[in-house]
Design a protein around this nucleic acid. Structure first.
Length: 572
RNA sequence: GGCUAGGUAGCUCAGCUGGUUAGAGCACGUGACUCAUAAUCACGGGGUCGGGGGUUCGAGUCCCCCCCUCGCCA
């Protein structure tokens, strides 16, 4: 039994995520976690909402809530949706937790002690009306280069010229529109990543089994231009982790907070501590996942994320951990995803384009979405969601291939033998061939799951389902039963056992349907098939079962057209 | 403009270090079956592997040039 730590990139707090966000990290991470648990490994699966920063403050201001109340509410909304999609987090934490505050301050203190923090004085624009400093994106004005009147503080979107906020003509706050601005001197902390460049470089070089997508992004940032740059880790905001050196005050940094990218990944660790708190465990229990001096040396740590998150996880977060000079666990494998497009364009949170998690669940149960998203995960390149493809995939794979298999065998058995696994007879050559095929396919499925080859695993699982239909079709118990009822009984017995096997194998993809299948088969035996032949003798003759309702319904053309229209525009 | 990843059957995609007639699922056609959610199973049609050069006995697979899509960066 191995110990596997799994984290999914943290969804930002300001709003409901779309299906592209879901398939880019949380969903494949859940697939992997469920599979590893099914294989009897000890799994810690962690996710959390990323709550700090200006976007959260602005979103709260819009709804008229205090920012902490807004975050608490939105956390519940997102946690609810995660449950709705059956995401099996051991803990769904919050980056605004007390644990993360303490841990973030602890890391900052250690980094300072070890000489990896530098104080910089800089000039920034302060808005008197808003009572705050305005980061680059939150100040607008006229571009001195081209005259475009909505240039942002960091860049003019019209002529692409890079700007300093102080260059803008007639600058105004993008938050309130106020022009009552002044330039103030402010001090910030920088993480001296440049000093760690050699160490990070060597570490990346050692990751020979990582996908090119991951290492090439890291190398680009390490080697381009002047190499890895130091980064500011503090901001003049109210909402965030107060800047402290461990438990101690940080002179000159009063009223400032850590920048969100610094505290967010630390939340992976803090959320595990939150898990311990929530389940009445001790510090030891979470530290054995994260501290290599306290039992984590045999943990395999896998991170899931979209490609946009790769730089933070290959450079910034490792720099934080390495620079602490404490024995924290570094990631062992990063699984990154490309983007999912929506019907010829991009999913867009800001424009409300695409299908969002709450909308998806309002029209169909989670298994339908899980199956389509995972079997079309954007692994090797960006992939595309279309309603037509979704309908075809769900109807064919889930309803016709798997659902109908369960339906035809349980109903046939019920009408000929009653709702009991029939006894007698011997299975023949066809059954032996089926077992041999499944033995090969199940091993292939396992190796794809272990390698996190999500699409390939889905394709293999589908082939495993189809093998059951092929067997039934060629064995034809409905014909055999007329002349040799015992031989037909053996075929039915084998097929009912296939239903249980399918439930066990399919659970990581479609947990609800798997639960229904197991319940219908009247068993709680979820043991993984070490040997397919043996696994197909789990339900003995005389074992009672029930005939379930259809596992999946089909999506009609009318529904598809309706949804296509409903989700074509902008979310209201 | 620089960089990454792509451009393979109508659609969504596989094709590792170059090697027999280029694969899968869906869609389409024909047949079989009738237990089942008008489901299933078998067989078949369909591609000059973005374009052009080159290396090689042999290239979708390597090299060069060009075109197109997507993303990141400046």
């Amino acid at each position: 039994m191995a110990r596997i730590l799994i984290t999914s990139a943290l969804p930002y707090i300001n709003g409901i995520k779309h299906l592209g966000n879901l398939v880019g990290s949380q969903l494949p991470a859940d697939l992997y976690a469920r599979y590893m648990r099914a294989r009897d490994h000890e799994v810690m699966f962690i996710c959390a909402t990323d709550e700090h920063g200006t976007p959260a403050e602005l979103a709260a201001a819009k709804t008229g809530e205090a920012v902490d109340a807004y975050c608490a509410r939105m956390h519940e909304v997102q946690a609810d949706l995660a449950r709705g999609f059956r995401l099996s987090f051991d803990h769904y934490g919050r980056s605004s937790s007390a644990r993360n505050r303490a841990l973030t301050q602890h890391f900052a203190g250690k980094l300072a002690e070890n000489g990896f923090i530098e104080e910089h004085s800089e000039k920034q624009v302060y808005s008197i009306a808003d009572g705050r400093f305005l980061p680059d994106r939150y100040i607008e004005g006229t571009c001195p280069n081209c005259g475009y009147d909505r240039a942002r503080g960091d860049q003019c979107e019209n002529c692409t010229k890079q700007l300093d906020p102080t260059d803008l003509i007639n600058p105004r706050s993008a938050i309130s529109g106020s022009t009552d601005l002044e330039v103030r001197e402010t001090k910030h902390l920088y993480l001296r990543q440049s000093l760690l460049k050699g160490e990070i470089d060597a570490w990346i070089d050692a990751q020979t089994d990582w996908p090119l997508l991951t290492t090439s992004i890291a190398r680009k940032w390490l080697h381009d231009g002047d190499g890895l740059q130091d980064r500011g880790i503090t901001r003049d905001l109210h909402w965030g982790v107060p800047v402290k050196k461990g438990d101690a005050e940080w002179p000159g940094m009063e009223g400032k907070v850590f920048y969100v990218w610094f505290d967010a990944p630390i939340e992976y660790i803090a959320a595990t501590a939150e898990w311990a708190d929530a389940t009445d465990k001790s510090d030891k229990d979470w530290e054995r996942w994260w501290r290599t001096d306290k039992g984590a040396e045999d943990v395999r740590y896998v991170q899931f994320m979209g490609k946009d998150n790769v730089p933070f996880h290959t450079l910034s977060f490792p720099a934080t951990i390495m620079g602490s000079r404490e024995p924290w666990k570094l990631v062992d494998y990063i699984k990154s995803f490309n983007y999912l497009n929506y019907d010829g364009g991009q999913f867009s949170t800001s424009q409300g384009r695409g299908v969002f998690m709450d909308q998806a669940l309002s029209i169909l149960p989670p298994d339908y979405w899980r199956w389509w998203l995972l079997s079309h995960a954007p692994e090797s390149s960006d992939s595309e969601f279309t309603w037509e493809n979704f309908q075809a995939s769900v109807n064919k794979d889930l309803a016709d291939v798997l659902g109908n298999f369960v339906s035809r065998i349980t109903k046939f058995c019920r009408s000929k033998y009653g709702e009991v696994v029939p006894e007698g007879g011997e299975t023949g050559e066809r059954a032996a061939a089926l077992v041999a095929e499944l033995e090969i396919r199940v091993r292939a499925y396992e190796s794809h799951m272990e390698a996190m080859e999500v699409r390939k695993a889905a394709a293999e699982l589908r082939a495993i389902w189809a093998a059951g239909n092929e067997y039934l079709q060629s064995a034809a118990p409905w014909t055999v039963v007329k002349t040799e009822p015992e031989r037909a009984a053996a075929m039915v017995r084998l097929s009912l056992n296939l239903v249980r096997l399918y439930a066990v194998l399919s659970e990581p993809f479609i947990p609800d349907a798997a639960a229904v299948m197991l319940e219908a088969m009247g068993t709680t035996d979820r043991s993984w098939p070490g040997n397919v032949a043996a696994a197909l003798e789990t339900l003995p003759a005389g074992h009672a079962f029930t005939t379930p309702d259809n596992l999946f319904r089909k999506i009609t053309d009318e529904e598809r057209e309706d949804w296509e229209k409903r989700f074509s525009g902008v979310r209201s």
